[in-house]
Design a protein around this nucleic acid. Structure first.
Lengths: 150, 150
DNA sequence: ACAAAATCCTACCTGAATGGTAGGATTTTC
DNA sequence: GAAAATCCTACCATTCAGGTAGGATTTTGT
């Protein structure tokens, strides 16, 4: 499992706010109720999104959360990388270019590197707007050859 | 982290055997020594590979492990799927086509489905032979646009 | 002024999975 | 019959996922 609930719920939150904001601040309680998720757990996830600059907040009555940019200006890779810590598929690749000490002679390293590139390429190409619009062609199209539901 | 040491070491084992077999059985002790990995832990991983039909074994002196097919006839997806249990990127997608009960109205599901397709498409296209041959073009080429080391 | 509505912050908790380890039984060869 | 090898069952420590609890702080509306 690459993406934990933390990253998955982060996406849910971003989409929920994007859909329900209309320029206003959206309260935690509303998000949690709509998405049927734990109030408290969401709070901790939103906190990460705020510290990472994905959301801004307003305290007090009528407060809540709001996107800092247009939906088209978020890509999924950055949202997940922020909440998950890393998207590396194996833990011998810590950050971009940082590998373990056997890297020079490791036969399988190019495999893991290639896998990471494929994942980054995909997630980096999808925007929050694509998800809100339900752009199935972009999300499923390129690789879906036996998917009749398209 | 999508791939744990279990899946990663499984790949290491498969590659090691493929490289060092020459038609003979390769002993656990030799693999562990060459790859500098725990004898006992490798044993438990190899056991999975045998039960899944990836390797065959011979007991007794001069015994060990051997591939059941040609390296070109293994793809990485099946090896990892066997050892990891699943390659699904999120746990709301259990197996192919099996999703959670909110699937019909879930905005983000196409994203996770698309991600899984991309991963499967990549790992399903790489063979054990590609890794042994160090076929960097196949493993890194299609997606690597800023990689001067190719 | 004050209550209500909201975010913010620190700490804690539980169960499952990861990443192993230990010891002996069994099989085969030389 | 000893040595070399796999096979099998059980155990274990640490980490992390996935939350929960409680109160402090900030802002608004009346």
């Amino acid at each position: 499992m690459m993406v934990s609930t933390k990253g998955r719920y982060a996406m849910t939150v971003m989409v929920d706010i994007a859909k329900n904001s209309n320029g206003k601040y959206v309260s935690l309680a509303d998000i949690a109720r709509r998405e049927n998720l734990s109030n408290k757990y969401l709070e901790s996830i939103i906190s990460i999104l705020i510290k990472g600059g994905m959301l801004k907040s307003l305290r007090g009555k009528n407060g809540g959360y709001k996107l800092t940019r247009e939906p088209k200006d978020y890509n999924i890779s950055e949202i997940l990388r922020l909440t998950e810590g890393t998207l590396a598929s194996v833990n011998c690749i810590m950050q971009e270019g940082v590998t373990c000490d056997k890297a020079a002679t490791c036969s399988t390293l190019p495999l893991w590197t290639g896998l990471d590139m494929v994942i980054e390429s995909y997630l980096g190409s999808i925007t929050l707007k694509d998800i809100i619009d339900g752009n199935r062609k972009k999300m499923l199209g390129d690789y879906c050859n036996k998917c009749s539901a398209l």
